[in-house]
Design a protein around this nucleic acid. Structure first.
Lengths: 186, 186
DNA sequence: CCCCCATGTAAGCATTCGCTTACATCCGAC
DNA sequence: GTCGGATGTAAGCGAATGCTTACATGGGGG
């Protein structure tokens, strides 16, 4: 009367359950009993295989962030990212942003997102303008994308949450172009 | 050997301490003992005057957002909120956004207050345009504010985190005016 | 003066949490 | 076959948390 003796499958089940629950509820409101329960695994095994709840959380973040970003040409980055966030309905909890936002106290969590956002999104966006404060402008556009994701995925704010993706994309790119347009010819 | 018998002052001290701690740590990582300790008040009084930790959190959110909404006409709401959020030394007690972002609260009194806050802000912003999709546009501007708060307060993203408040405010209001301007004469 | 209730205090209760321990059971190596 | 480590299970421990209760006390009204 016990689950199949398969350590790898047990570890994977725990990681999957943790990924889902941390993303939905955040770190604090997810208990090790919840994770083990969803995984169908005795909770003592969580500690045998991952050491602690903290370490499991770090593993979740590391695993997720590795799969996060794929390259997009800079000119289409904003549009592509927006469309993805707007269409991410089916499994929004997969985006590491949600786990991190709901667990903002966690140093390693904020660190992961900070590094990725800084080195990928913002740099690509900043190449779209030649203004002196290009990086700040890129941060502001990035903030917009993040904010839209938060209002939709975390708060469920209407009418934004159910708005048409192309409409939103058009409005945002139109307004953001004020910040990202090239002022000098190039 | 007891504090002065002044119920109003005690309630205010509790509210101030709660506002600060909820903003810094979020709901879950703030304990009623922390709040009472910072306020210099016996923790039983917290329950006597506010009923529960949940109700106190809701009171904090309601109080903060009411203050900000009341003394900001719609035309200046975006600017004032941005200036607060981008203040040089981030003081989490200055804006309820930080408390909300650090607290992933569902099914509670605070959830209701949070939804009300979002709708009040959005309604004020949507009054600034006569476009057909005014509410969606307002949501997008609200999302921008939220995203800036996330990047700055939660993730500490540079250069945004240490950017000059007036510069950020100018850039954002300029771009947002594309969404919120009156298209028809009125 | 004295009563009484608003205010403040101290202690603890019930629950939940992360984590540990002690033990059962399976399976491959020899 | 049997031995031993790997895997799974059941139970509970100590600490922390939200909240309650029982009591002390001070100050204003009769």
């Amino acid at each position: 009367m016990s689950r199949p003796r398969d350590a790898a499958a047990t570890k994977a089940a725990l990681l999957d359950a943790a990924t889902k629950l941390f993303g939905e509820r955040g770190f604090d409101r997810t208990t090790v009993r919840d994770i083990a329960g969803l995984a169908g695994v005795n909770q003592a095994l969580l500690f045998r295989y991952y050491g602690s709840k903290d370490a499991l959380f770090a593993t979740v973040l590391a695993t997720q962030s590795r799969e996060l970003l794929e390259d997009s040409p800079a000119e289409h980055l904003l549009r592509n990212v927006l469309l993805r966030i707007m269409e991410e309905r089916p499994r929004p909890e997969d985006h590491p942003l949600y786990a991190v936002l709901r667990s903002s106290h966690h140093d390693s969590a904020a660190e992961v997102v900070r590094r990725q956002m800084g080195e990928e999104y913002a740099r690509a966006l900043s190449s779209l303008t030649d203004a002196e404060d290009a990086e700040l402008r890129a941060d502001l556009v990035l903030a917009w994308v993040v904010g839209i994701g938060v209002l939709r995925g975390v708060f469920g704010k209407q009418p934004l949450a159910d708005a048409d993706a192309t409409t939103v994309t058009a409005l945002v790119t139109q307004a953001a172009s004020v910040l990202l347009e090239h002022t000098r010819l190039g």
